[in-house]
Structures are given as structure tokens and as C-alpha cells.
């Protein structure tokens, strides 16, 4: 360790600390999914893990200290792992197709409606999970179910 202050944003190597978590904190496996699968599963995560997510966020609003909500955080992660592994068991092909489409299209939903609909259908049939966007205007078709939208991908 050197005596001079190093700005982490100017460091040559990323700031990493190899020290593991203290032993009194129960270990939990990290989800490890990258952004496209997470984005593809986001609405199902929101529906499936609603209770755990809300519990965690309420806990965070109590106190921003990372130590305060470790337990709730583990529950959130476990629930997410549960859902993602279920999706990989039951809707693997649809899931894979949708997130690779997202990966290819700048992670925007609108160019990937076709694989999204097959995924939504599979998720509803297997788990009864429905994608709902809170706050969208009532009495109108939600944007992910519009048949002939104005914005489509440039290349089909």
C-alpha cells in the first residue's frame, strides 16, 4: 500500500478488494445474469418477486446503510435466481431468443415484439405471469400488445 491518495476513477486497474464477506453474513449465490437477460425478464421479476422487492425497498427507505437490508437483499436475490432458473427450465428457447434479440437491438423492447410475445405466452402458460406496465392509460391496448405500431425496427 502506498501513502499517496489515488483517485479510483484514474486507477490503472479496477478497484477490487479480494477480502470476502465476513463469516457472520450468510452466503448467497449472485444471479450473474447480464443486462439483456435481466431486461428480458424484468417484468416477470417484478411480478414474481413483488413481495420481496417491496420489502427490500421499504427496508432501504428506512435506512440507506448497506448493512441494514442484507437479509431482505438475500431474499430478493434468491427469488430472482429462482425465477431465472425456472425460466431456463420451462421457456429456455423463448427466453434465449428474446434476450438475444434485445442484445442485437440496443436493448430496446419495440424491435423485439415477436420473440417477446412468444415469451409472454410461454410465461403465462407455465407460471401464470403476465407482463403489465403500471400507469399505462386505461382502456387502451398496452404498448407491448399493439398489433400495428408506428415504431418498428428499421430492419425486420
Amino acid at each position: 500500500m502506498s501513502g499517496r491518495y489515488h483517485d479510483p476513477s484514474e486507477a490503472a486497474q479496477p478497484y477490487s478488494d479480494p477480502t470476502p464477506l465476513p463469516n457472520n453474513v450468510p452466503k448467497v449465490q449472485e444471479l450473474g445474469a447480464t443486462s439483456a437477460p435481466l431486461k428480458s425478464a424484468a417484468f416477470f421479476l417484478g411480478a414474481y418477486c413483488k413481495d420481496y422487492n417491496e420489502d427490500f425497498m421499504l427496508c432501504k427507505s428506512e435506512n440507506r446503510d448497506p448493512e441494514h437490508c442484507l437479509k431482505e437483499g438475500r431474499r430478493v436475490t434468491r427469488c430472482a435466481i429462482d425465477l431465472i432458473s425456472k425460466m431456463r427450465d420451462s421457456c429456455a428457447a423463448e427466453f434465449e431468443q428474446h434476450w438475444s434479440c434485445l442484445e442485437k437491438h440496443n436493448q430496446e423492447y419495440y424491435p423485439c415484439r415477436t420473440p417477446e410475445r412468444t415469451l409472454n405466452k410461454c410465461m403465462f402458460e407455465k407460471f401464470g405471469l403476465v407482463k403489465t406496465i403500471p400507469g399505462s392509460p386505461e382502456g387502451k391496448t398496452p404498448i407491448h400488445e399493439v398489433r400495428n405500431p408506428v415504431f418498428t425496427g428499421v430492419q425486420k
Binding site: 464477506l21 421479476l45 427490500f56 448497506p66 437490508c69 437483499g73
Partner: peptide, 11 residues
């Protein structure tokens, strides 16, 4: 996705 990512970051 916020709770999931925040939980991971907090740990």
C-alpha cells in the same frame, strides 16, 4: 430491476 441490483451492490 432496482431491488435486485441494489441488493447485489449492497452486499
Amino acid at each position: 430491476l432496482v431491488p435486485l441490483l441494489l441488493a447485489e451492490g449492497d452486499r
